[in-house]
Nucleic acid binder design. Structure first.
Length: 462
RNA sequence: GCUCCCUUCGUCUAGUGGCCUAGGACAUCGCCCUCUCACGGCGGCGACAGGGGUUCGAGUCCCCUAGGGAGCGCCA
């Protein structure tokens, strides 16, 4: 049997961290078993679904490299399938028309709540032999079994047993004829031959209803795996404050897709003590049985650590493209500066995001350096102007512009004036960058270039 | 209210009855390295929610309590 998993987001909001993790788990499971990963857009809520959300979901999946083999399917384009199945169910008396008014339902609900009962439909129209004389359009309800239990063998939660007495006859078609969620999911998972339904555990309670419908349809029941939700860093429900923002925001903020994926795969899943997983390793090692059934809190610091890990270990040429993207966002012209890959190498161990790297690399690309008042006051003293002047001259005469030769010159000046290295390196750094922080001085000078370096020193000492 | 799920350091987790005086990672603190910031190295602080069982032995199995969360929609 070929493994088939799916990711079925509803485009009523953006693709956030929680959704991405579920998608990742589904994708990994399919890839690991050489199966198929299907993307399905659950857009039946016409009121709240938006085109932008669909675009953002697709873009997010693409950015992360979570490629699908089939789809994207749109539920709004599958209404004829749902209608056909509803008609079949009604014809077989496995579903029925319900004419109850919303008022009646609301009263019923209030009464049940008052009696401290779980609010459920009472089956009023289930045994109606003749339709009532009413002008209101009916809904269609599924005839849920009234006795017995449904056993869900969840791959993450374990065996969960639901008593059919706790369930009621849910609406599968609204009065306007449109199908409802619990029904479309079932029809789609069935028709798309999904073998493993991996989704958020907020759906665990829906599972027995869906299994009952599947059984009524004579369909094979898929395996289920309910993943716990992601909490905010404060242990509360994830909100916009923590990361319930579009996954594309992470791209804009300078995160690498491999870092986000690595972070998310370890949130709720583990393989012994291993923290770093390449895409290939994730695929090979991932298993649903090792997924934690408890919710996990989102920890931005660890994501940052992983991001820097991938910045430090990634291919500079590839990271350079990410840096270029960030520079563009920040309006930094990179044309006239040093090769971006070399900037990446120089800055990798002092940037946690590519955005941060771009921000801290402005001085490599601009003619007009912004000088920090504090740094200038502290390091560009009058006593240092003579050594800096000599240094500029020596640098100007260098025939070989390399970090090693630059370093030799800096050391020579330090020796000549009997200065500790820091006493000349820091003033030089401020002259070059406007700040007291940068990569090793010889690398900084090297990357800024001979002409610019000499010019910057002379500018600050005149 | 009812049903279901969850509970190991601040956080992510290892742990599948003896290897646990509970291991790793992030964060944090200290030291070292050092031209700055970092990176790196070394070390410190720090947890089995509580209570009952079962067992020779429980973080690990069972029950209860407490605390979190989800569902109970003509939303998905």
């Amino acid at each position: 049997m070929t493994i088939r998993t799916r990711f079925a987001p509803s485009p009523t909001g953006y693709l956030h961290i929680g959704g991405v993790r579920t998608a990742l788990f589904s994708w990994l499971y399919a890839r690991k078993h050489g199966g198929q990963f299907i993307l399905r857009i659950e857009d039946t809520d016409l009121e709240r679904s938006t085109e932008e959300a669909v675009t953002a979901i697709l873009a997010g999946m693409k950015w992360l490299g979570l490629n699908h083999d089939e789809g994207p399917f749109y539920q709004t384009q599958r209404f004829d399938h749902y209608h056909a199945v509803i008609a079949q169910l009604v014809a077989e008396s496995k579903a029925y028309y319900c004419y109850c008014s919303k008022e009646r339902l609301e009263n019923l609900r209030q009464e049940q709540l008052a009696r401290k009962e779980k609010p459920r439909y009472d089956g009023h129209c289930r045994h109606l032999s003749v339709p009532p004389t009413t002008t209101a359009a009916p809904v269609v309800r599924f005839k849920n079994p009234e006795v017995g239990e449904v056993v869900v063998k969840d791959l993450i939660k374990g065996t969960v047993i639901f008593n059919n007495r706790e369930l009621d006859d849910l609406i599968i078609a609204r009065s306007d004829g449109s199908p409802t969620y619990n029904f479309t999911v079932v029809v789609d998972d069935w028709e798309m031959q999904i073998t493993h339904v991996i989704r958020g555990d907020d759906h665990l309670n829906n599972t027995p209803r869906q299994i009952n419908i599947l059984r009524a349809l004579g369909a094979t029941v898929p395996q289920y795996a309910h993943v716990a939700m992601i909490l905010g860093s404060d242990g509360q429900k994830l909100s916009k404050r923590h990361g319930a923002v579009s996954v594309l925001n992470y791209q804009e903020e300078g995160y690498l897709p491999e870092a986000l994926l690595n972070y998310l795969v370890r949130l709720g899943w583990s393989h012994h003590d291993q923290e770093i997983f390449s895409r290939q390793e994730m695929i090979e090692l991932f298993e649903l049985e090792a997924v934690n059934s408890a919710p996990a809190a989102f920890n931005p610091e660890k994501l940052l650590w992983l991001n820097q890990h991938y910045i430090k270990t990634g291919e500079p040429a590839r990271l350079a493209e990410h840096l270029r993207f960030q520079c563009e966002l920040l309006g930094i012209e990179t044309q006239a500066g040093p090769p971006l890959a070399e900037v990446v190498t120089a800055q990798a161990e002092r940037a946690k995001t590519l955005r941060e790297m771009a921000q801290n690399s402005r001085y490599f690309f601009t003619e007009k350096v912004q000088y920090e008042e504090k740094a200038v006051q502290k390091h560009l003293t009058t006593e240092i102007k003579k050594p800096l002047s000599d240094l500029a001259n020596r640098l100007e005469q260098l025939t070989e512009w390399q970090p090693t030769s630059i370093q030799a010159v800096v050391h020579a000046i330090a020796d000549q004036y009997q200065l500790k290295l820091g006493k000349i390196a820091q003033p030089l750094r401020v002259a070059m960058t406007g700040t007291a922080v940068s990569p090793p001085i010889e690398v900084t000078v090297y990357l800024i270039g001979q002409q610019r370096s000499v010019a910057r020193i002379r500018q600050v000492i005149t």
